[in-house]
């Protein structure tokens, strides 16, 4: 992955770590049929922080992420982004991007058209969008594939295109919903590293959803552990290890300890569910 970086947006380039980027205030989700998808959650993510939501299927981690994105309104409680309600984010000059579980690319369009989609939808001219698309593709190392169709690319490359599409708007907040879940382990590890580099280069705030303990430990500064039936947050674990992290960290004693702790926490929560 090349070290190209985008020209920064006009709004605040410096990270203010004391500024909460995301505040989830007793937000909960109940489906119309009465199912409690997510019990009230309180969560703060600081600007520039990398936080992972970890849990089994049905724990409401994707639901929580969608509520933060504004794709789903909480049934109760509130969610603030930079101290403003979610819909007012763009008016304040900040942007968020959402990366889906699947690459969700348009199969009929080539890679660069796919990446420029958010800019096109925001009515940016070709002259404005072209250099940004090129820079974004360079960031994920796909410059050579700009005119390829998605189906000519491997699963990992398609996911990179999806990330490039997420980065092209120069977002301040990147929300990722199990983006590498469908990939083989080697590709997944490589994309994890790429993501960490981008996070540091672009001074992003990232909320990352995964069901992989190893991925959660490797990536994040803080892991939010969630459990299912009903969906809830059971614990938050700070992974106090410096970035950049490398392959050595994956096989270190410290890594194993964090992973062990998270595994115990998940199992305990799952046992509690079964006792009810």
């Amino acid at each position: 992955m090349s070290a190209t970086s985008l020209p920064h947006a006009a709004v605040d380039t410096a990270i203010d770590r004391s500024m909460p980027a995301v505040e989830v205030l007793s937000a909960e989700q109940t489906y119309p049929n009465g199912t409690r998808a997510l019990l009230p959650v309180d969560l703060k993510v600081g600007e520039g922080e990398f936080v992972t939501l970890l849990g089994p299927s049905g724990c409401g981690k994707s639901t929580l992420l969608k509520m933060v994105a504004g794709m789903l309104a909480p049934t109760e409680g509130r969610i603030l982004l930079w101290r403003k309600p979610v819909p007012e984010l763009e008016a304040s000059g900040r942007r968020l991007s959402f990366v889906f579980q699947d690459a969700t690319l348009m199969p009929w369009a080539d890679v660069q058209t796919n990446v420029s989609l958010p800019l096109n939808l925001a009515h940016q001219s070709k002259a404005e969008s072209e250099p940004r698309v090129a820079a974004s593709l360079a960031m994920v190392g796909l410059s050579r594939f700009a005119t390829h169709r998605p189906r000519e690319l491997s699963g990992g490359m398609q996911m990179r295109v999806s990330i490039a599409r997420g980065l092209v708007t120069q977002p301040h907040l990147l929300l990722m919903d199990e983006p590498f879940g469908a990939l083989d382990e080697i590709t997944r590890n490589r994309l994890d590293d790429d993501l960490l580099k981008l996070w540091q280069q672009q001074s992003l705030t990232v909320v990352f959803v995964t069901h992989s303990i190893a991925e959660a430990v490797y990536l994040s500064q803080r892991v939010v552990v969630m459990a299912a039936r009903p969906g809830r947050v059971v614990e938050q674990l700070v992974v106090d290890e410096p970035h950049p992290r490398g392959p050595d960290f994956r096989v270190s004693q410290r890594f194993a300890e964090y992973a062990r702790h998270l595994q115990d926490s998940l199992l305990k929560a799952s046992d509690e569910t079964h006792m009810h």
Binding site: F98, F100, N120
Partner: peptide
């Protein structure tokens, strides 16, 4: 329509026409 793409368009406030 791919539901993911559909949400993506919604998230980016795409007009009905777009």
């Amino acid at each position: 329509v791919n539901p993911g793409l559909s949400s993506f368009f919604k998230l980016h406030h795409a007009s009905r026409w777009a």
